[in-house]
Design a protein around this nucleic acid. Structure first.
Lengths: 112, 112
DNA sequence: CTTTAAGTTCGATGTTCGACGAATATAGTT
DNA sequence: AACTATATTCGTCGAACATCGAACTTAAAG
C-alpha cells in the first residue's frame, strides 16, 4: 500500500494541469474515475499499455489523480477535492464530471 | 477591416482550447484582453515578435480570440461570450478574468 | 519453482511545440 | 519614391510529446 509521489494540493500548477487535461484520452480516464477508484489496467483504451502507463504518470505528476500501489496492481483515484479547492469548477467545465452532476451543479447555482 | 479566419462558437474544441490555455504567455495575453480589444503589438512580452505572432495565431485558431486587420495593424478581442457559452466558467477558473471581475460575476451569479 | 498477470521502464520513431532571426508583405509618412 | 512601423511567414533549432514493442520487475497463483 504505497502511495506514489505526487504534488500537494497547493503545488498544483495551472499550466501543468491544463496540459494534462488537453488530451482526450486523459480526460476520458478522469471521467471514468468520477464514479470511484479504479485499477489502472481496467480501462478499455485503444492504445498500448505502455502508453496507458505514460498517461497515468502525466495525470499523477500533474496532481489530478493519486495512485496507490498494492501488490502488483495500482489503483487510481481522482483528487477531486484537491482540484476543486485549487481550481473550483475546472472538472465540471472540462466535462470530467458527468452530465447529470454538471446539470445538478448548474441547477444548484441558478437556484441560489 | 478584415476579420481573420476563426472557428465558430460551436466549433470550439475542448482539447484545442485547453492546449492554448496551457501556456502562461497566452494566458497573460488573454488576461490583458479582458479590459478590451488591444492592438497585437501593444503587449510587453519578453519574447521575439515572431513568437508573439505565433501565440496570437494559436489563440485565434483555438477560437479564444478574434483578430481584425485594419490597415497595417491588427486588433485582438477576447471572444468572451462565445467561450462562456461553450465552456461556462472556463475563463474564470483559468485565472483569465481578474479577481475583481470574477468576484463581480460571482456576486451577480449568486444574486440571481 | 514455474507460470501468469500487472505495470513500468527503455529505446526508437515521428510529431508538435516554443523560440529565434531573416525575409516578406502591407500600409501609412515624409 | 523612399522610409518607417506593424505584423506575418519561413526555415531552423532543441526540447517535449505520444506512441509503440520489447525487456524488465514485482507479486500472486498453480
Amino acid at each position: 500500500m504505497a502511495l506514489l509521489p505526487q504534488p500537494t494540493a497547493d503545488e498544483l500548477d495551472l499550466s501543468t494541469v491544463l496540459h494534462a487535461l488537453s488530451d482526450r484520452t486523459r480526460r476520458r480516464i478522469l471521467a471514468e474515475l468520477v464514479s470511484g477508484p479504479r485499477r489502472c489496467g481496467s480501462f478499455d483504451l485503444p492504445i498500448a499499455k505502455s502508453s496507458v502507463s505514460h498517461h497515468f504518470k502525466v495525470l499523477r505528476d500533474s496532481g489530478l489523480i493519486r495512485v496507490e500501489a498494492q501488490g502488483n496492481t495500482r489503483t487510481a483515484t481522482l483528487r477531486r477535492d484537491d482540484i476543486e479547492a485549487r481550481f473550483p469548477g475546472l472538472l465540471a467545465v472540462t466535462g470530467i464530471l458527468d452530465t447529470d452532476q454538471t446539470a445538478a451543479n448548474l441547477r444548484n447555482r441558478d437556484a441560489h
